[in-house]
Write a protein that binds this DNA or RNA. Structure first.
Lengths: 332, 332
DNA sequence: CTGAAAGCGCTTACAG
DNA sequence: CTGAAAGCGCTTACAG
């Protein structure tokens, strides 16, 4: 049985309240009492129970981090950013993996609330809107990563997707490409997806370049396999295309494979650019040029924003946009 | 302010205790009262506070998961296994990332104890022994992943490293290789490392094959770059080597690059086998043959073992060994 | 089948 | 500078 505050108080011959004051460094205390209490704490190896404290302060120093799939190389970096910032502030973090299942997502959120977390950071799925609407009624504050959803008590950290697509297209055009295809990812209305497509369209337009409708190919999934298949189809049907901009690195890596099989040299016969700049980009051959998202910072800023909201609950922030850059490697 | 048990009791016109009984499905209750209480709970959107419950039951339904680096592709899979099993049992999981820093590891462990977790799963660093000895005195139960440390209240889940090395060597020998080098990873006494080297030595011996001392090359780090450099040196100094067994996939991928630069075809001029079978193995070209570790299951079994210990605290288990297999792809 | 009392380990006003 | 009382939201014996 670990020692309690009462144990310390009895052994030191003071009241519980005095021990509490020493532990929390609040109020004036005679130096002598303080020392004696501190010694007793040391001797008994006393540590305050955060559970008991949480019950009375309604403040647990814990938060929840909810995402679809920690196995996806994008997420661990975000998690690390959250964890590092949380640790600085002496918060502990519950990690929850929903597997992209909406029902489980809602259960998870409620379970976190039951555990008394002070706030939640969530990277929603494209179709989480209903869950968020339901949940935000009973729980705040919330920080959303890469998700458009305005609500009091809710903050958003969003990657500048349009800028990323624009950087990719500008670079390709600068290299002399005019017929640029896009692997646009799973056909859903995720704002990540919509905005990357939008950025691509706008950039092309800005350069006075036309886009054939079927240069933009949605994929069944955002995997290497799908990138591979889709690129095969795209380049067979439209051999005039000399560059491919992919929704993410996995699709881009699939495109790399397809070009190899089609005997098209990368980047000379076909340039390829990915998105996210995961660690996979440096491992493939040729290495992948990719739009770099500072995933660690995404998590770090999300936690930082949550801490701000925890301090000043009134805080109603407009979305924070995170800039991206283009990391140039061999594939383009 | 969320509704409390007292709110429900008052509104339903019963005692707090009766509400508690309904919520916890314990004791006999007249069907009519039960229904009325349930209705009130629904109406008020009441959810029991797990914090309050934890304080009295000394049982929080939370555990801690401690690791060095969630960014390393090995760990997210383990985490997923832990999370899935935890969720089945309605446990929530605190994730802690130590960055391999021993001081932070200890602080993290103590912070988890302060938060009242029921148990902890830790993937220790090679030099965590002192921390574990200190911490286990005040906190149990503990489950260690891939770490040798016998103690009451401590269980271990360990990958069968020797078997993995043996599978790799057996396969290479079967393919006609006799001079097999090894990239043995960072020179530290981690049991993973020691046992993979041991397995390699034993398997070679078993086939009657000699090993020159400098066929086993430690690396500065376990990264692609180090695998790259080390393989360059190894193959320049010992061109007779026709196969390389690497401590992990990253080193093996570095070896792949080195062979390419040296003009040695993989697998014909030099076969390469990695360890862990991370998702990187399928992405490189040629794809990497690797000793498959069921990382998800490693986490799943760890959580399972922790749950067992939580139910029967006496449980003093011997280490659980997880078998591995060889996933054959193009590199060997 | 239901309830009043005590207590989990702390902190928060309120006194002195 | 220090303490006694009440209470955070529950559960655990103990009664009836």
């Amino acid at each position: 049985m670990p020692a309690t505050m009462r144990d310390v108080a009895e052994k030191a011959g003071v009241s519980i309240k005095t021990v509490s004051r020493v532990v929390n460094k609040q109020g004036e205390i005679s130096e002598e009492t303080r020392r004696r209490v501190l010694q007793t704490i040391e001797a008994l190896g006393y540590r305050p129970s955060l559970v008991a404290r949480a019950l009375v302060t309604q403040h647990s120093c814990t938060i929840g981090l909810v995402m679809a799939d920690i196995s996806n190389p994008f997420f661990p970096e975000v998690a690390r950013g959250v964890l590092d910032r949380a640790q600085q502030a002496e918060y502990n973090v519950f990690l929850c993996n929903t597997g992209g299942n909406l029902q489980q997502e809602l259960q998870t959120l409620e379970s976190l609330a039951d555990h008394g977390v002070d706030g939640i950071i969530i990277i929603p799925s494209y179709d989480s809107a209903q869950n968020l609407r339901t949940f935000v009624k009973t729980f705040q504050p919330l920080v959303l990563v890469n998700y458009q959803f305005e609500h009091p008590g809710v903050s958003q950290i969003i990657v500048n997707n349009e800028q990323g697509a624009k950087l990719a297209v500008d670079y390709l055009v600068d290299k002399g490409h005019q017929k640029i295809g896009m692997l646009s990812g799973v056909q859903n209305p995720s704002s990540n997806r919509v905005r990357r497509i939008l950025g691509y369209r706008q950039a092309m337009k800005h350069h006075g370049l036309a886009i054939a409708d079927d240069w933009i190919v949605p994929t069944r999934d955002s995997t290497v396999e799908c990138g591979h298949e889709s690129t095969h189809r795209l380049l067979s049907k439209h051999p005039e295309i000399t560059a491919v901009f992919a929704y993410n690195d996995l699709l881009a890596i699939g495109a790399l494979k397809a070009c190899q099989e089609l005997g098209r040299d990368v980047p000379d016969d076909c340039a390829i650019i990915g998105f996210d700049d995961t660690h996979l980009a440096t491992i493939v051959n040729p290495t992948l040029t990719s739009v770099r998202v500072d995933k660690y910072n995404l998590g770090y800023q999300a936690m930082n924003q949550l801490l701000t909201m925890l301090q000043t609950p009134s805080e109603s922030s407009s979305p924070i946009h995170l800039d991206v850059e283009l990391t140039i490697r061999q594939s383009a």
